[in-house]
Design a protein around this nucleic acid. Structure first.
Length: 293
DNA sequence: TCTATTTGACCTCG
DNA sequence: CGAGGTCAAATAGA
């Protein structure tokens, strides 16, 4: 986080971001409680998510404004630049490298109890490759949606164990799921909304904040309830966040590493996830980047 | 027998 | 030409 210091504006904004992230985390907890409640109110959940949207949106704006005064500063505007990408289907019939693919989501998640990988994210993944990466201690695993053939679902993800902490996994999502989840297998983790369950884990994983030191940390998480066997042997259910978020929009900027992770974490928990969760109508969530348009 | 994983080869990009 | 991403045959497990 040192990189943020030395920039007076950025430092001030960072404090705001920290406080707002604390607030977001609190809201997520409330949301989780409501989701577990037998008489959960969808309206209340929507209200909570709306506030989460607003806070994350503003935080992203702070970060962007501090570092890129000349760049579009609102997440909505930055995200909208991706619209040209979204209408281009993910290329699957080529071995061409996808380094330039824009609509990706990068999250860092932990493996509970020394598991081989992050927990299930509600989607079925099929491993199709593994590669040793130059400079990385651990190989990178490549997964694609199980429904790729049957439903032409373009979603893929890459899972790589973090060098610094083997208990953490960097998961990069490419493409969006176009498959219908009803057809796939789904562990009954949450009778009300299993998808929400995994999402919340992801949310919390991505929003760990060290408020005392004013440091943001989206890595040190230990979700206690998501110990699921993964990687080889299981159905490959590895990742946390199945929700493609255009973190690449920010990755294109020369953000400092930690700060970039903050933005990535923020975007990873924003609108699309909730859209997935509650099937919001398109008009809901003013100011929320609409990644799927 | 079907499905998922493993792994070496192949392809493309920078 | 090296690195990263994907393919596809071989293999394993249910």
């Amino acid at each position: 986080m040192e990189s943020v210091e030395g920039n007076g504006t950025g430092r001030g904004n960072l404090q705001l971001v920290v406080s707002e992230l604390c607030r977001v985390q609190e809201l997520v907890r409330q949301l989780e409680l409501h989701l577990h409640a037998p008489d959960a109110s969808i309206d209340l959940c929507r209200a909570l998510t709306a506030e989460i949207f607003a806070l994350t949106d503003r935080s992203i704006g702070f970060v962007a404004a501090a570092h890129f005064p000349d760049a579009p500063t609102t997440p909505s505007s930055t995200s909208s630049s991706l619209s040209g990408v979204s209408d281009q289907p993910f290329r699957t019939n080529t071995k061409k490298r996808k380094a330039t693919a824009r609509w990706t989501s990068q999250v860092r998640v932990s493996a509970a109890g020394g598991a081989e990988g992050p927990g299930d994210d509600g989607h079925s993944w099929r491993k199709y490759g593994q590669k040793d990466i130059l400079g990385a201690k651990h190989p990178r695993a490549y997964y694609r949606c199980t429904h790729r053939n049957s439903q032409a679902c373009p979603a893929t993800k890459q899972v790589q164990r973090a060098d610094q902490d083997p208990a953490l996994f960097d998961v990069v999502y490419h493409g969006q799921h176009t498959c219908r989840p009803t057809g796939g297998r789904r562990p009954p983790t949450n009778q009300h909304n299993p998808h929400a369950e995994s999402l919340l884990q992801s949310l919390r994983a991505g929003l760990t904040v060290d408020a005392e030191h004013g440091a943001l940390n989206n890595t040190s998480v230990s979700p206690p309830s998501m110990a699921s066997p993964v990687a080889s042997g299981s159905n490959g259910g590895l990742a946390m966040s199945p929700y493609p978020v255009p973190a690449g929009a920010y990755a294109e900027w020369p953000l400092d590493g930690d700060l970039q992770e903050v933005v990535s974490a923020l975007t990873a928990v924003s609108a699309p996830s909730m859209d997935c969760l509650f099937e919001f109508d398109p008009t809901f969530g003013v100011g929320v980047p609409n990644f799927f348009m």
